[in-house]
Nucleic acid binder design. Structure first.
Lengths: 229, 229
DNA sequence: CGTCCACTTGACGCGGCTCAACAGCGGTGG
DNA sequence: CCACCGCTGTTGAGCCGCGTCAAGTGGACG
């Protein structure tokens, strides 16, 4: 159906906060600038060190942004999902990507060429404000992550990541908050700077204390949220 | 002398990267919007949780931006010096400061009211670009800090902070790079998430290995930079 | 149903934190 | 100017906890 093709495209622009101040006609103009692409789980979308030519907006799915260290470790910096964008650095500075992006599940993205987006920016300055707003939020998350890693106990870091996931990926059930985990145990470890084994042990402890319940490896039920503070 | 009063004011705007695209007349208009203030060492400029009404630009001196944790620890997030700005978050969002700012030495600042700055922004959109650029740089520093704290050994973190300080506050001498430390040992510890004792020990080790030389508590000479990689 | 990879659990060692004692330095007041 | 005091830095001893290595288990997917 023809009009469905349009719907599909609209999705990209409609749900994106940075375009939220534009009206319908303006959005339609933008649609023509967009290229879409779909990635499967574990596929690399951007590799650290590459030059970026697009601003990328996630339409559907989840990705992780991470750095690999020389000695084979991995630090996950962000988990991006629907509506989030990345590659914005190349818009102001002509720099290489400072981290890699990998799909955590089937993910469809929208790409806008650097030039096109710069034109949009000068045409609609409010988009710039929205981006600054989003960058500010990202900065605040990073600042909190540093505070956690620098000053908090390992237990507290586990609590924090559980609460963070509960907020972003949790649903309220009668027995508690059910989290659809975006990351594996190893992923969680790489997100908060621990090892897989330590995460595993800490979660087992929490389960023994009846604070959480692990459901397979993909879900966790938080039975008593208040014990995680 | 009258024209020196003007010079003094100019300093504020001239050396600030975010105004670097403006011409002389435009800068003069801005000068009228600015309030200046001087803080002594250890004075608090902003307290976490306060509402900000200004964008603050450092004219002269150094400050630290930090968070205090419930159990009395401190995480230093940034060291700002001449030309750096803070308080930008209040410009896009009406939020409280997420960290405190304290003068590390005698520091003079320039303040521009929120409304005034928003007007500037819409008048000179390039200022917005400059701010995004600076925010991007800040994000990159935070991302690297997280990678360091999450994946690197304590030794490597000490090396990194020495190299960072060498770059920002060091001068090349014949015997090596002489660093004018912005932070005390305790400050360094709070910057990279260690304890005072550990920093002290690690620096003593480096001195024994003849890689650095401590000169009082305020200066460090890096004799062999290449051993710090 | 079988294979493989991720997760779990245990044992162990090392390294950074804690506690404690002391030294050095700067600031203050007599 | 000196004496005192408090804060920061140094150094030592000991402990605890996380990382490492290793073995065994379980779930996901073909």
């Amino acid at each position: 159906m023809h009009h469905c093709e349009t719907c599909k495209n609209n999705v990209c622009t409609k749900r994106v906060p940075i375009f939220s101040l534009l009206n319908h006609d303006e959005l339609n103009k933008i649609i023509n600038l967009i290229n879409r692409k779909v990635y499967k789980r574990n596929e690399i979308i951007i590799l650290e060190g590459q030059y970026l030519k697009n601003l990328v907006i996630i339409n559907n799915g989840k990705v992780k942004a991470f750095k690999n260290t020389i000695d084979g470790k991995q630090q996950i910096l962000y988990i991006f999902s629907s509506g989030d964008f990345f590659g914005e650095k190349s818009l102001f500075m002509n720099e290489k990507a400072s981290y890699s992006i990998e799909a955590l599940e089937e993910t469809s993205i929208c790409m806008i060429g650097k030039k096109d987006f710069q034109n949009l920016l000068s045409q609609y300055p409010n988009i710039g404000l929205k981006i600054m707003e989003e960058l500010s939020k990202r900065i605040e998350r990073l600042e909190n992550a540093i505070e956690n890693m620098g000053t908090k106990s390992v237990d507290a870091r586990i609590y924090d990541v559980l609460l963070e996931f509960a907020k972003s990926y949790g649903t309220q059930e009668k027995e508690g908050i059910l989290i659809d985990l975006p990351l594996s145990r190893e992923g969680i470890a790489n997100y908060i700077g621990l090892t897989r084994e330590t995460v595993s042990r800490k979660l087992s402890n929490l389960q023994e204390e009846n604070i959480i319940k692990m459901i397979g490896n993909k879900k966790i039920l938080i039975k008593d949220k208040h014990k995680l503070f």
